[in-house]
Amino acid sequence: MKTIILRTASTYLLPLLLMFSIFILLRGHYSPGGGFVGGLIASIAFVLHAFARGLDNTKELLKIHPGFLMPIGLALAFLAGVTPVLFFDLPFMTGIWYPGQLPVIGSLGSALFFDLGVYLVVVGVTLTIIFTITESA
């Protein structure tokens, strides 16, 4: 597997795929996509990198254990959900929207942060599972 081509390719593939995954995440509100699929694409990027460069390299690149992304993602999504409760006295999960439009993303609102949380959790979960299996296989 660890052919030179793949190694070289993965160097470029990783950032490319990550970019793509974020694009998918951001456009989710308007076209097919969203945090979940975006997260999966990002994980695939890392998995490919791991295949090419070895698991240890990927881990080093990530700096933190991928499992750590799960509480971060959950916390982000949770915050997006409770912000209206804490600061606006609105019910849980009420969408809070920044007035005005941004490119690509469209309206900026709490839903986006929520989706970002989903994205992080999915990356964390997928990588944790696959890395753990590979390690103990």
Partner: peptide, 24 residues
């Protein structure tokens, strides 16, 4: 008290997340 119904849920969710941060 408007959101009171949700407090037990939010509290448990909060606890779970915090506990995940305290891994090990």
């Amino acid at each position: 008290t408007q959101q009171l119904v949700l407090y037990p849920l939010l509290l448990q969710m909060f606890l779970s997340i915090v506990l995940m941060f305290c891994w090990r």
